[in-house]
Write a protein that binds this DNA or RNA. Structure first.
Length: 860
RNA sequence: GGGUAUUUAGCUCAGCUGGUUAGAGCGCACGGUUCACAUCCGUGAGGUCACUGGUUCGAGUCCAGUAAUACCCACCA
């Protein structure tokens, strides 16, 4: 059989075929799984990647983790479902397509909406196909029959219904407000889509009628309608409530002085100018004091017609001009250079944000409604976390979520871009119609805006599971009943607030339940220097290239091991290469195994099948491993689980048991352990394990085999201890061989009065054991006497042994002191005390052996 | 300004509820290739677990503080 098995594991040859086999089997779809009638479902909805680009290594990490979870639970007998999909990423996609078109000299406006959208769809069909291909290459066991897109027909329908329902419940309203406006994207942005960048600018101190006050934006003076001071500030007490005429570059204008606690007495002069239309804090002050609003900046970020000679300038141009003019008029007190402050920019394109007033659609997060038990969306969303209906892994993110949710303002959901979900609202003069389908009659025009991309992705867990069809009269049916709430949302911590919190809000409203029971947050994938991978830096690692070079299994392992939840992972090609070596190791174990024509995988074993110490030992270790690994995976400790598996496979099984099998030839045990190894590894490295398994069973799939259960009866502590002693003796002899440069081919004579495991020792350390006590200079290891005549440097060996003896004596002293400590005896657990006692006995025994050894050497 | 995390071997990182002589991979040193595997095997060197206190019979692990680093949130005119 071995001759037919290729010497190398050729992942490129194997992987696509295996994936096709899985896909054709239909088992990605839980409806086809052969599970118990009352089997629980296990659902993960894939966080849909943006169709703006192909997948990067961060996505690969996400896919590796989710596939691990899904495969694990599928093998555990769950109705496992993983729904794939992609996100239309409204603004981001529009920007990418716009940029591409600009390279050809075409602008969005010149194409017109319809033609432009055609270009967008052309683009997204391509990237979508690439993404689907990449997911398959990662081995993702997703149910493609349920694949979704945030902007396909079913999702459009769901979004429309959601909007209408929320509107009817009074949670969606239209308001005229100051919003974050990106003059480049020509659209609003949500608060958390704004990025702040530090900038060194100037702080202008203005002579402002009776005041002197500081501002970084003197051009907004044209829109000022008030001055605000702190109510307790004695300097301005008498001025509150009075009106003043302020000299300005376009003539005098009137302001009113108001007292508001938002003002910081200690900053600047303690008085601030209020520009309600172009500053959030000012807008809020204006609301509280009923101050009028005067808009001076338009949607292009330019000064409006009411700005006299400054009209048409950008804010930056206007600032320079106005400052010049104010200086001429003597209105500038002084200018502070190098003033460091934060600049609000658009997270998609980096353009400076202008706060401007605008009519937009909002979701009210603080409004209490009956449907939510007279609570607000915010209250219910906070409850979900505090009542642990949703658990965060790692737990610390609960706090981040709650803090963010507590400070949430009404969510602006309308966007002035072309690509996205249409808003199901129609206008006829002053009349407004909100409904899932357009009202009859020609005179109605639909709202030209589209919805924030998070509105549709916020519905992702249920819009993909048949909502609204599978939800009648508050009852879930079909898929929605079977698979919702989902078990885990696995995603990067960077979108905890952007996305996760919105899903919670939307789902609570639509279904009166949480979207998922657990939120597992993985870190960012960084390069080996801890830097973010990016195209511009050229430090990115392309997942497909790595898969091609090292195989998917190796790539998956490099992303799963050596990391902890919520922490960033550094990855390098060397790391991937390393795990490729492990996959090769697994393959070589298989080659050894299959070199025996009688080799068969064995699902079960009887105690009688265990013939030797080695058998009892490896089977015991295996069964301990099974329960630990299951437990680790269930508790999201993938890295730990993988490391334990690796250690078992490489160090225990390959390095020890397989070597011993060459002598003992217990094929049953070998087949049993190997069978379990393949199953335990499958969720981590699905391809190589499936390939090996299929070589034994043409008509079965490892993917749907039962996950191993630990059999406690096979755990044998004595065997583990005894084998440990054997390993130690062998290591010691090997150690002696290397430290004294004994020719590796030289077979050392040795004798023992009571030889156990003779063959193993002889073979593994190249000695010849007999039980006749010759007259020879010997070195005693355990109960083995090595004939070291003329071989070793006695003094050197004594010195090294004495060092060990000293260490051992220290350990004994420390442990005995502990045992003599009354407090320890009184307070420690009985188990711990017993363990400690056993330990001290073991130490003493070792010490005795070593002392004998030294005495023995000294006599030579 | 507020918050969270990180700090363990030369490098990258594990270490779950406090309890053996703190681990892995890479790198390094030495030795090894007919016998599954040089993408390998064997042996070894290398750590005051950032620092200072505290709680405890017992601290890498818990608490407080300090320092460095990273990130998040808020935004102040």
């Amino acid at each position: 059989m071995l001759s037919q098995i290729s010497k190398r594991y050729d992942h490129n040859e194997v992987e696509d075929k295996i994936y096709e086999l899985w896909e054709r089997s239909g088992f990605f779809n839980p409806d086809n799984l052969d599970v118990e009638k009352d089997a629980k479902s296990y659902t993960i909805i894939l966080p849909p990647p943006n169709i703006t680009d192909k997948l990067h290594l961060g996505h690969s990490a996400m896919l590796a983790i989710e596939d691990l979870l899904v495969r694990f639970h599928r093998m555990k007998g769950f109705r496992a479902l993983w729904v794939p999909g992609t996100d239309h990423a409204a603004i981001a996609t529009q920007n990418v397509v716009e940029k591409n078109l600009l390279k050809k000299g075409i602008t969005r406006q010149s194409l017109g909406k319809e033609k432009f959208l055609e270009e967008v769809w052309k683009f997204l069909n391509e990237t979508q196909a690439t993404i689907q291909h990449q997911m398959r290459k990662m081995g993702a066991s997703m149910d493609w029959s349920r694949e979704a897109f945030t902007l396909d027909e079913p999702r459009k329908k769901a979004v429309r219904k959601m909007f209408v329902d929320m509107y009817n419940a009074g949670l969606i309203y239209r308001g005229y407000r100051v919003v974050n406006w990106c003059p480049r994207c020509h659209s609003t942005l949500a608060d958390d889509e704004v990025e702040y960048k530090e900038e060194t600018g100037k702080l202008y101190w203005l002579k402002y009628g009776p005041f002197i006050l500081a501002t970084s934006r003197p051009e907004t003076k044209l829109g000022d309608t008030a001055v605000a001071v702190h109510p307790d500030d004695p300097r301005y007490k008498d001025m509150v409530g009075k009106k003043f005429m302020i000299p300005g570059v376009l003539g005098d204008f009137e302001i009113i002085v108001v007292a508001d606690k938002a003002v910081d007495k200690d900053f600047g002069s303690g008085a601030i100018k209020v520009t309600p239309a172009h500053d959030f804090a000012d807008y809020e002050i204006a609301q509280r004091h009923h101050i009028p609003m005067k808009q001076i900046i338009d949607e292009d970020g330019k000064m409006m017609d009411n700005c006299g000679k400054y009209a048409g300038m950008t804010t930056v141009e206007a600032r320079e001009e106005i400052v010049k003019d104010m200086e001429k008029m003597g209105l500038i007190d002084h200018i502070e250079e190098n003033y460091v402050h934060n600049l609000a920019t658009c997270y998609r394109c980096g353009t400076v944000i202008e706060p401007i007033p605008s009519k937009q659609w909002f979701v009210a997060v603080d409004k209490k409604i009956e449907k939510l038990g007279n609570k607000s969306l915010k209250e219910r969303a906070l409850e979900a976390a505090s009542k642990k209906e949703i658990k965060f892994i790692p737990e610390r993110f609960t706090k981040r979520y709650s803090d963010w949710m507590t400070n949430l303002h009404d969510w602006c959901i309308s966007r002035q871009i072309w690509f996205g979900h249409d808003i199901p609202v129609w206008y006829k003069g002053q009349e407004i119609y909100v409904g899932e389908v357009a009202p009859k009659g020609d005179e109605w025009t639909q709202d030209p805006d589209t919805l924030d991309t998070w509105f549709s992705s916020g519905m992702w867990t249920f819009s993909t599971l048949g909502w609204p069809e599978d939800y009648k009269d508050g009852k879930k049916t079909e898929d929605l009943a079977k698979f919702h709430p989902t078990q885990v949302l696995e995603t990067g911590y960077d979108i905890l607030t952007l996305w996760v919190s919105r899903m919670i809000i939307m789902t609570i409203f639509a279904l009166d339940e949480v979207p998922f029971e657990n939120v597992y947050l993985h870190g960012l994938v960084l390069d080996k220097h801890g830097k973010k991978m990016s195209k511009s830096k050229g430090n990115g690692i392309d997942p497909l290239e790595m898969i091609e070079k090292y195989g998917t299994d190796a790539v998956r392992l490099s992303l799963l091991l050596g990391s902890t939840p919520g922490n960033n992972v550094r990855i390098s090609e060397e790391k991937i290469e390393n795990f490729r070596n492990f996959v090769t190791k697994l393959w070589n174990i298989y080659r050894y195994f299959a070199s025996n024509p009688r080799a068969k995988l064995k699902d079960n074993i009887e105690k009688d099948d265990l013939k030797s110490l080695s058998d009892r030992w490896i089977v015991s270790e295996l069964n301990s491993l099974i329960s630990e690994v299951s437990d680790d995976v269930e508790k999201y400790r993938f890295s730990l689980a993988g490391e334990k598996l690796e250690k078992f496979t490489w160090d225990k099984f390959a390095a020890w048991y397989v070597e011993i099998h060459k002598m003992e030839k217990n094929d049953i045990v070998l087949g049993y352990v190997f069978d379990k190894i393949l199953k335990l590894w499958h969720p981590f490295t699905p391809f190589v394990t499936e390939k090996i398994f299929r070589d034994f069973y043409e008509d079965k799939l490892l993917m749907v085999e039962k996950y191993p259960e630990s059999d406690k009866n096979l755990i044998n502590k004595e065997a583990v201890n005894e084998f440990g002693a054997l390993q130690e003796a062998i290591s010691k002899i090997r150690n002696i061989r290397t430290s004294y440069h004994i020719d590796s081919k030289l077979i050392i004579n040795a004798h023992s009065e009571n030889i156990k495991n003779k063959e193993i020792i002889e073979k593994l350390v190249r000695i010849k054991l007999d039980n006749i006590n010759h007259e020879m200079r010997t070195l005693n290891i355990g109960n083995i006497n090595l004939d070291i005549t003329n071989i070793i440097d006695v003094q050197k060996e004594i010195a090294s042994l004495e060092k060990e003896i000293k260490n051992m004596e220290n350990s004994i002293a420390k442990t005995e002191a502990l045992l003599n400590n009354d407090n320890f005896i009184k307070k420690a657990d009985m188990d711990i005390i017993n363990q400690t006692k056993t330990r001290v006995d073991e130490y003493k025994e070792k010490l005795r052996v070593q002392r004998d050894l030294v005495d023995n050497l000294k006599q030579l």
